[in-house]
Design a protein around this nucleic acid. Structure first.
Lengths: 215, 215, 215, 215
DNA sequence: AATGAATGAGGATTCATTCAT
DNA sequence: AATGAATGAATCCTCATTCAT
């Protein structure tokens, strides 16, 4: 199960199977944008460069996306969706016998792992996050997604025994989700040790969660 | 994205602010940039607007700063310095009787407080952080400062009883410092409760610190 | 989504032409735009060509006008103002002994004349009119000016003995003004004889006016 | 201004609409263009939108029309033809007992009427007129048509008793025709009263015609 | 014949930076 | 030293038209 959901994390690739030519082009564009974001950063992300890297003309690019923001939004949205889907699997799964800490640990292991394996992925997500802040219009979407994720996390926490008001549960979900964002940010700094930070993040979060758990 | 046309540039102050007249102009420029950053965000931060708000000509601005990056760098550097100085005071103070947690609590209260009191300050620091990420050249400087702060924190932690290798101590300092950055980021999201987040940040960090403390 | 990016635009002059240098540049730009409009038509009127013909860079052009519309608006506004001022002189003058027809005849002779003398002027005004229709935002201004002119004409007609309700007087003023627009349009057609058309325009208008005059 | 990239082009129909299938497609295209012109204006009239609304592909559209201008030309040409045919009926009819004024009155009532009944038609013709001015190549064709119509009108006027040289008669025909164009333009302005304008147009024209009539 | 994806020149606009005065 | 007009490369985006399938 952990294997299959590992795959479902990469929604971008999952959609790739060439159902239609359109879908493939869209994927090319997204892949190009992702690649530029990871390799050169947000500053160098121009529509013309994306088109060139995707192997099509600028005009074609605009046949698939109405504007630059839409590309970034899709990238971000895809990523958020993959996280949401992963969390939903856990939410829907049999949580019998799981403690809040045990389930969070499992989920974090799965979500944080790619950063250790692939620094590109790490840079990519950090740049994506940056971009999100630069386009105010996209923040609303970000918030909506974030709230959904927070809701799922809150539900999982509640089901596994965390006792708190709905609002605190929701805040806890939001906090957990945003903690992941800060993890990404930290990895961008040189000199930080991913392993240690990961452990500390878990330890800190678990300490908080446990304080809301009935004994 | 106006920042995309940036090239490698020197980021040092062009003119040592030795004369008081000069010092004043430099301060005006920095204050204007800070104000614009806090009120309108990074996207609206143009050199022309800074000059206008600072009450001098764009030509004069370039007599005090070689380029836009240098202004942002100075702003960031000033902020880091204030943090460093604050921490150095603690470092130099009599830490007798303090536990790692007690001293961290004191320092965090002092550093985090402005965000509760002044949302402008919060926005300002978040935008500053964004800018830092957008100018790759500035990141190296950021890292140097961060390492200094981490070193101070490591020293304080060691003096107050944290037991770990030098490297782990340093990582712990770095982690503590970066946790603050993530706090700023979280506050930018709607729907988050500053009070709760602050408490959780502390609780998480203290939990980690305590695990490195001899009993 | 791309459709929605249309925004209201300011159509005022960005920089008050208070200093003579500025004034001169503004005039250069307007003259260049006018010249292009007259010689090549609206299709070839691009900001870059205006700048080049005006002898300055595209960047400079945008220091004097916030956008292309503003240039066209200024051109149109200037022309309307000259007409308004001319009419106001008549309005303020001693109309004793004048009949509606005699005063209209005098004014029309003065306003229509440039077309006979200068075909460039004729083409220019026709293109300007075309442009006005292409920019919806400018139509509101057009209407406001038109109403002012209509008001002045109505006043002149009333003072010189036309008897009608205020509304009809106003409509008559509007009609007289718009008749001039149609004169411009007709001149653009080959094979038309300006002299005849002018006489007919007058004859038609006078016939209408006289039917509202007490005998 | 998308039209600015236009170059000299043939404006004839590429394919004679001899087969009924073809004829239908051509009509679909023209109807779509007309509809877009009336509802959204010239600026929003793109070949791709026309094709979509006509229910065929952009490629097919270009099988029936060599370029965008040709479509507009056909639209304009069709409209002119309908006017021509209407006038020809009068020209061919028994004009015994008709005065120039009575016959013009009858014709104008018939031609002007649609504007009162259908504001869409009014907008359509105004946009068509605008388009005509934007494509210099089309003006020559416009003039040819206009001359034909002027010739018919001149003939009708002569037959019903207007006495003037052939040239003046022709000019009078042209003037009458163009007066209609100005009527359309006036209707686009807010605040004008169609009824009054119509009456005034007639009154003005009749006054001119009568001055060329033997008593 | 039909399709519609692909093209890319061209347009409006911005803004960091320079330099003549 | 101070000024601020001037620069122009660079960016996002449009749309008439073509052509491989």
């Amino acid at each position: 199960m952990s294997e299959s959901s590992q795959k479902s994390r990469k929604v971008v690739v999952r959609k790739a199977p060439s159902q239609s030519r359109s879908k493939e082009k869209v994927q090319n564009i997204l892949a190009a944008a992702k690649s530029l974001l990871a390799s050169e950063g947000l500053e160098k992300l121009t529509t013309n460069r994306i088109a060139k890297l995707a192997g099509l003309s600028i005009g074609s690019l605009y046949q698939y996306f109405p504007n630059k923001q839409a590309i970034i939004h899709q990238l971000y949205s895809d990523w958020l969706q993959s996280v949401r889907e992963l969390l939903r699997e856990y939410q829907a799964s049999d949580l019998e016998g799981e403690t809040p800490v045990s389930i969070m640990q499992t989920m974090m292991d799965q979500i944080y792992r790619p950063h250790d394996l692939d620094p590109e992925e790490s840079r990519y997500e950090a740049e994506l996050n940056k971009a999100m802040h630069l386009y105010p219009e996209l923040q609303a979407i970000d918030h909506r997604h974030a709230r959904q994720i927070a809701g799922i996390l809150a539900d999982i926490l509640r089901k596994t025994g965390v006792v708190a008001t709905d609002d605190v549960l929701f805040q806890l979900g939001l906090y957990s989700y945003e903690l992941y964002g800060s993890y990404e940010a930290m990895l961008q700094h040189e000199g930080t040790s991913p392993g240690l930070i990961y452990e500390w993040q878990k330890q800190g979060l678990f300490s908080i969660i446990e304080s809301y758990t009935k004994k």
